[in-house]
């Protein structure tokens, strides 16, 4: 338990530090509206980061999550808006495809990095077929849900807290979550203990698909329309978010709460840089620099923990 706390310490600290820096540069951000604007886009990114984390948890990596979220956004803005029942069916089928991929990767021992790379072409193609030009419309209930203004805390922050709690219960507290993390830690021992690794990987990928679908829907709820390239950045952002949140690429060592915090940090970093009136030329570079700084700090913390 104490190790878990140490793992979470750094993501929390970097988020707090960044938030303090934002408030210092732009004190007006310290309000309900300000926070809402700062974290608005965090919800879909956090959902995509949890999806990526579920795949990294079983020792794989998902290079298709960005195009998958784009595809789900396109479905939400077209089919789900026009005929809700068909839309639910399509999104359900997409989740089933994700689960089937997990089973295929394990059953045939395929490299996940290549299969998901191939799938990224497939989802991109399907998204282009759905929505050849940017457009579509948000279902009203989704728009209402994403723009609701609850008392005390903005919707974006409440949603992220809820997501962190739900995924923490699912991954760290449930029996299923423990089995899934065990697949990442030592798949052979899980198989010896009588569990079907193929089925467990299908479950992990299926869950990732569910969070991917939710991410696409949340994105359309905020953006009010969609296009086929709307979430391409999410592939890299989600990997960075998982790592920033203290997750590791191997061994099933991931932290759902950390992943959500990592996603929030990345969202905030972008807002912070635009507050600084930094020339847009340098914004991507500065985001990379922030990533490097956080990882360097993590190294220092770890050294001290070892000593």
């Amino acid at each position: 338990m104490r190790r878990l706390d140490a793992r979470l310490l750094l993501p929390v600290l970097s988020l707090a530090l960044l938030l303090a820096a934002v408030f210092w540069v732009q004190p007006r951000a310290m309000s309900y509206t300000g926070l809402n604007l700062l974290f608005n886009l965090a919800v879909p990114i956090a959902l995509a980061t949890i999806a990526q984390m579920l795949v990294i948890m079983v020792d794989d990596i998902d290079l298709s999550i960005g195009t998958f979220v784009s595809f789900c956004a396109c479905v939400t803005a077209t089919v789900l808006h026009d005929s809700p029942l068909l839309g639910v069916l399509v999104l359900g089928a997409a989740v089933a495809v994700y689960a089937a991929l997990g089973a295929l990767i394990e059953a045939r021992k395929l490299p996940a990095i290549v299969v998901t790379l191939g799938m990224s072409f497939v989802w991109a193609g399907l998204a282009v077929l759905m929505l050849p030009a940017p457009g579509g419309a948000t279902p009203d209930w989704l728009r209402t849900l994403m723009t609701v203004k609850p008392p005390l805390l903005p919707m974006a922050i409440l949603a992220c807290v809820l997501l962190a709690v739900v995924s923490h219960l699912l991954v760290t507290r449930s029996a299923l979550g423990t089995r899934l993390r065990a697949v990442g830690g030592n798949a052979r021992s899980v198989a010896r203990a009588g569990w079907s690794v193929v089925r467990l990987k299908a479950v992990a990928y299926g869950l990732a698909g569910v969070f991917g679908v939710l991410s696409g829907m949340a994105l359309v709820g905020l953006a009010t329309s969609a296009d086929a390239n709307i979430a391409l950045r999410y592939t890299l952002l989600s990997i960075a978010g998982v790592i920033l949140g203290g997750g590791e690429f191997t061994g099933g060592r991931v932290s759902p709460v950390g992943a959500v915090i990592g996603a929030l940090t990345l969202t905030l970093a972008a807002s912070f840089l635009s507050f600084l009136r930094l020339s847009p030329d340098w914004q991507i570079g500065a985001q990379g620099a922030i990533l490097v700084l956080v990882l360097a700090a993590r190294l220092l913390v770890r050294r001290r923990a070892v000593a």
Partner: peptide, 19 residues
Amino acid sequence: LGAGVRLILTGAVIIAIVA
């Protein structure tokens, strides 16, 4: 074939070859 179908087939081919 349009861009969409082309992308889908490219992806399917990559996965088929790896499998």
